[in-house]
Simulated scan of single mutants.
Amino acid sequence: MAIARPGHPVPHTDPTTPSPPRRRRAEVLACLKASASPVPVAEVAQRTGLHVNTARFHLDRLVEDGLAQRESEQAEAPGRPRILYSHGAAEPGPRSYRLLTDMLAGLVAALDPDGSAAASAGRTWGHRLAADQEALGGGTALARLDTVLEQVGFAQTRHHDAGGSEMRIHHCPFIEVAEQRPDVVCTLHLGLLRGVAEELAAPVDVTGLHPFARPGLCVASLRDTATRDPAPPTPPAAVP
């Protein structure tokens, strides 16, 4: 915090402007990115105009932050090898996204017991995924609905009979988590279907989703809105 001294105004600081140390560190990082091969401290200092000790300090901090790598030069001559720096993090360790997904699904179930928030989130994502309709190509709204779902990773077919219409989902990209938490994942999926259909103005309402209705199959119930009976005309008001 700046403190005013008698006769001196408080200097104005812009919080969006990087401080000098951060700016210098960004310059050092930019130098590493522009280098085709690992470089020694002296070369970084020369390119950035920094003192060698200052350049080394920022390089070591970049290594600690995972933004740079440090290695010893493979020198043939005797003597202490130089330390070289390059842009990029070390090889990533193992990931456990499945565990993270299971934990998040459990959290959603605890915080959203009636599923309303999950359904709303799925609907929002459905609208978002279908918003760029030019990228979906031409064709009918139902064809573009299929395209959106296929881009996500679903595989489905639609079937019609005297009893109504349904979408048979043969492949679900969330199946492993859905088997453990259908209350969360399938509610998200139902909201997603509804959001996509609404965004594309598809002539169907997604009235329900039946997880694992048949072996290896989930079924979404559809209602064809294009063949709805028109609303009866409103009778004219009586003239007094």
Rank of each mutant, 00 (worst) to 15 (best):
A2M: 06
A4N: 04
H8D: 14
V10G: 08
P11W: 05
D14M: 09
T16L: 13
R22E: 14
R23L: 10
V28Q: 01
A30L: 06
A42D: 09
R47Q: 01
L50F: 13
H51E: 15
N53A: 14
T54Q: 05
T54M: 11
L59M: 12
R61G: 10
L62G: 02
A68Y: 01
R70H: 03
E71H: 09
A75G: 00
A75L: 09
E76Y: 15
R80N: 11
R82P: 06
R82N: 11
I83D: 01
A89V: 07
G93I: 11
S96I: 08
Y97Q: 07
Y97L: 05
T101S: 15
D102A: 10
G106D: 11
A109P: 08
A110V: 13
P113F: 14
D114R: 12
S116T: 10
A118C: 02
T124V: 04
W125Q: 12
H127W: 08
A130V: 05
A130I: 01
E134D: 14
L142F: 00
L145M: 07
D146P: 00
T147I: 01
V148G: 04
E150W: 03
G153H: 06
T157C: 10
E166R: 12
H170V: 05
H170L: 13
H170Y: 07
H171C: 12
Q180N: 01
R181P: 01
P182V: 04
P182T: 14
P182I: 09
D183K: 02
L190F: 03
G191N: 08
L192D: 15
L192A: 12
A201P: 00
A201E: 15
A202F: 13
A202L: 01
V204L: 08
V204Y: 15
D205P: 04
D205A: 06
A213M: 14
V219M: 07
D224T: 07
D229Y: 02
A231V: 03
P232Q: 11
T234K: 08
P235Y: 15
P235I: 09
A237T: 04
A238M: 07
